[in-house]
Design a protein around this nucleic acid. Structure first.
Length: 399
DNA sequence: TCTGGGGTCCTAGGACCC
DNA sequence: TCTGGGGTCCTAGGACCC
């Protein structure tokens, strides 16, 4: 079968789900996200008519359409809808790679005998999603992941598009390289400086030439992309999607927060760091993992963003241990900017190098050192938040 | 009131070891 | 003593995705 891969992408997912439950908003501009210092997560088509796009700042969106209705995303609604949609996909094929709340790749090779050719499967899925969940989606069909992805974007809104291998050159080579999955702004600019603007421009160079121009990996990857020859096998479940796919992220978990106003006070920044650390490490424990590398991120008022990391001798799932590593990293970042307190816009913390906790894997105590009991305290906090919610349990230093 | 929050992967230099 | 290479770990930064 020439085109066994489907990329299914919900149309304006966050906005569509919200409007589904409030039909009176269907024909007025609706923006999800983009509150104070936030960016637009999703905009319905009436809002897009004003030029509003996801990713733009809320300020910009309000300037374009002051009358738009703005709502915050409600993940307690969005997540169950998303999971139900993924289950709908799995009634068609077990090979579903989930890449975010609102999109997935499907390998339908095993489904054609039952349901017909990929186009028919696509229409079947679209009808089912519309009937069961009341929202529209678009489907791209191709032989590889990046081409299917490109096709679904061209299919929007509410459509299906097939790009078979024999039509790839004619249909994709004239387009801007930026349409390729994996070519972002930075790579686009780099290519433009070399005089390469379209996919076809890049395709005039051999793999070796591209490697020489752009580096071994990027060059090789780009060469595959411009010939529509990237990955064809899916990873069922899909990794790295928060609380999603078959499970938790593999490599790292983190949390960051843009403060409501820029903050200079170091004690206040440390409190924010502790709040974020407690949240992240609770997730790490909840996933039965431990991490070894702690990374602190700070974004200053001028938007420069810096990170400092430290690798611990042993993996940990103890909030206090992660925090103890994180504080000097935060202090270091602030001190580097000079003796005067600098205004900070964002604070973040991430735990990397996650490993599964083996059952019965006790704490390693260094000889002569007493276990301070933080681990027991963490588990008590976890149990209490499970029962009473986050509002009920807070560290004394956060009160 | 310019510019979120959650991730993954790659690069590159230095340390350290063989 | 000098020269050299490869592998792994750690750190910092950056690109990319939704």
């Amino acid at each position: 079968m020439p085109c066994p891969l489907l990329h299914v992408d919900m149309d304006a997912f966050y906005a569509s789900v919200m409007i589904r439950d409030r039909p009176e908003l269907q024909h007025v501009p609706v923006v999800v996200g983009g509150g104070h210092r936030g960016v637009v997560l999703s905009a319905n088509y009436p809002a897009r008519a004003y030029g509003i796009r996801s990713g733009m700042s809320g300020t910009e969106a309000r300037r374009l359409c002051p009358g738009a209705i703005t709502v915050p995303p409600d993940f307690s609604v969005l997540t169950p809808v998303s999971k139900a949609i993924m289950e709908t996909f799995r009634t068609v094929t077990p090979v579903v790679e989930v890449t975010s709340l609102d999109e997935a790749f499907l390998d339908v090779r095993g489904a054609v005998r039952l349901f017909g050719p990929p186009e028919a499967i696509a229409e079947r899925i679209r009808a089912q999603i519309r009937a069961e969940h009341g929202i529209a989606c678009s489907v791209g069909i191709a032989a590889s992941v990046s081409v299917a992805k490109l096709a679904s974007r061209q299919a929007k809104p509410d459509g299906v598009r097939v790009i078979p291998p024999e039509r790839f050159v004619a249909e994709v080579h004239p387009l801007d390289v930026g349409v390729l999955y994996g070519v972002g702004e930075a790579t686009r600019r780099r290519l433009a400086k070399l005089g390469l603007v379209t996919v076809g421009d890049v395709a005039t160079f051999s793999r070796d030439q591209l490697r020489q121009m752009l580096g071994r990996h990027l060059g090789g990857h780009l060469h595959a992309l411009v010939w529509g020859q990237d990955r064809t096998e899916l990873v069922p479940g899909g990794a790295g999607v928060f609380g999603f796919g078959e499970g938790e992220p593999e490599g790292s978990m983190g949390a960051q927060h843009t403060l409501a106003v820029d903050v200079r006070d170091r004690a206040a920044l440390r409190r924010e760091l502790l709040r974020l650390t407690a949240r992240v490490v609770a997730r790490v424990r909840g996933a039965s993992r431990r991490g070894r590398t702690v990374t602190v991120t700070v974004r200053f008022t001028d938007f420069t963003t810096v990170q400092r990391s430290r690798t611990l001798p042993e993996p940990t799932d103890v909030t206090q241990e992660v925090y103890a590593a994180a504080v000097p990293l935060l202090d270091g970042l602030l001190d580097e900017r000079g003796p005067r307190p600098v205004a900070v816009r964002l604070v973040g913390v991430r735990v990397e190098g996650l490993r599964h906790l083996r059952p019965g894997d006790g704490r390693q105590l260094v000889l002569g050192e007493r276990d301070p009991g933080w681990s027991d305290a963490d588990r008590a906090v976890d149990r209490a938040t499970d029962r009473f919610g986050h509002a009920a349990v807070r560290r004394a230093s956060l009160l």
